[in-house]
């Protein structure tokens, strides 16, 4: 069974990029364009891992991370954002990893592989 990943990202092209790359890497990938949609999908069928953008209209990534954690304690959460100065606060978000957006998604894929293929 392939691991299931939910990509939460409001920028359509970025969302497409991450989703396509992860699909190529062999995961089963779903996407959501904001926190609300992500929450609905997650409640419907929990995922192994969720990548979350911080800056989104409506519910922001931090809130979403907290709520997902409430629903499923062992879900793996990866913050994927354009900001680099949030890193110090990572512990408080209960995220498992923090990755700055880049054209090179190798780091993201390595981190995900480490987190859910253990």
């Amino acid at each position: 069974m392939p691991k299931r990943i939910l990509v939460v990202e409001d920028e359509p092209n970025m969302r497409l990029l991450v989703a396509e790359e992860l699909m190529d890497a062999g995961y089963e990938v779903d996407t959501a364009e904001n926190g609300e949609a992500a929450l609905m999908k997650f409640k419907d069928k929990p995922y192994d891992l969720v990548t979350i953008d911080i800056e989104m209209p409506g519910m922001n990534g931090l809130e979403l991370a907290g709520k997902l954690r409430e629903i499923k304690r062992d879900v793996r959460l990866v913050i994927l954002t354009a900001y680099s100065h949030y890193k110090s606060d990572m512990a408080s978000w209960a995220a498992d990893a923090y990755i700055v957006k880049s054209s090179d998604l190798t780091e993201l894929k390595e981190v995900i592989s480490r987190l859910i293929n253990m």
């Binding site: 092209n13 970025m14 354009a82 700055v100 957006k101 880049s102 054209s103 090179d104």
Partner: peptide, 10 residues
């Protein structure tokens, strides 16, 4: 960062 990442990625 967003457009540059997306650009490079694609």
């Amino acid at each position: 960062r967003n457009p540059v990442s997306v650009l490079g990625g694609f």
